[in-house]
């Protein structure tokens, strides 16, 4: 099922940031979001994930199909890597076990370590491994490669390619070239225009 976005308008803190967004994401496809800082990429991804309502337009095909990964990874420092992953696997009802996810990000050697003892890049790898245990078809990722080294970026790209090959899709806000075959959407062109206040009362001043 295709994720399709029609005439979407989104707001952050009540201020419209993007409007008139139209795109669709078919199974097996990836879309990379570009745009300057503060343009509303994170807000767009959070809106698609259902964390906030859109101010205009429609989102179809997103309900209960999105695995969202934001700036923070949702990792508990006092639980081990295995416990963290196993928790998310059972919350999402994933039956396949977590070994595949550990292997995809080379976390086997760290599996018994408390997540608080991991480096920033290792934590990010654990956060990305969580996507593999959600079993959700649409990955919505916000700057997934932050603090990853070159090898880990390659692991991430391989995981995305494998996900696409299985018929999943991915929407990624990133500024580096992942080497994944993806369309690029520059959201800078959809910046919301300031609205004229029709009932503005100048005498008030």
């Amino acid at each position: 099922m295709t994720l399709s976005v029609t005439d979407l308008g989104i707001a952050r803190g009540g201020v419209p940031v993007l409007e008139g967004l139209n795109f669709s994401l078919a199974p097996g496809a990836a879309l990379v979001l570009r745009g300057p800082n503060g343009i509303g990429k994170t807000t767009l991804l959070r809106t698609l994930a259902g964390l906030q309502p859109p101010v205009a337009g429609r989102i179809a095909g997103a309900e209960d199909r999105i695995a969202y990964a934001g700036h923070s990874d949702g990792i508990k420092p006092t639980l081990t890597v295995t416990e963290n992953l196993a928790f998310w696997a059972s919350v999402f009802g994933h039956a396949g076990g977590i070994d595949g996810a550990l292997a995809a990000y080379a976390l086997e050697d760290l599996a018994a370590r408390p997540a608080g003892a991991l480096s920033a890049g290792q934590k990010r790898r654990l956060g990305l491994a969580r996507l593999l245990v959600t079993g959700r078809p649409i990955w919505v990722l916000d700057e997934p490669t932050v603090s990853l080294d070159r090898d880990a970026v390659a692991m991430f790209a391989a995981a995305v390619r494998a996900h696409l090959a299985e018929g999943g899709s991915a929407l990624i806000a990133t500024h580096i070239d992942l080497g994944v075959d993806a369309a690029i959407l520059d959201v800078g062109a959809f910046r919301a225009r300031p609205r004229d206040l029709a009932d503005f009362d100048g005498d008030f001043l």
Partner: peptide
């Protein structure tokens, strides 16, 4: 909330 777990729980099937 601080470590982002709430965001992820809100998008989970639960």
């Amino acid at each position: 909330w601080e470590d982002g777990t709430l965001d992820l729980l809100a998008t989970a099937p639960l």
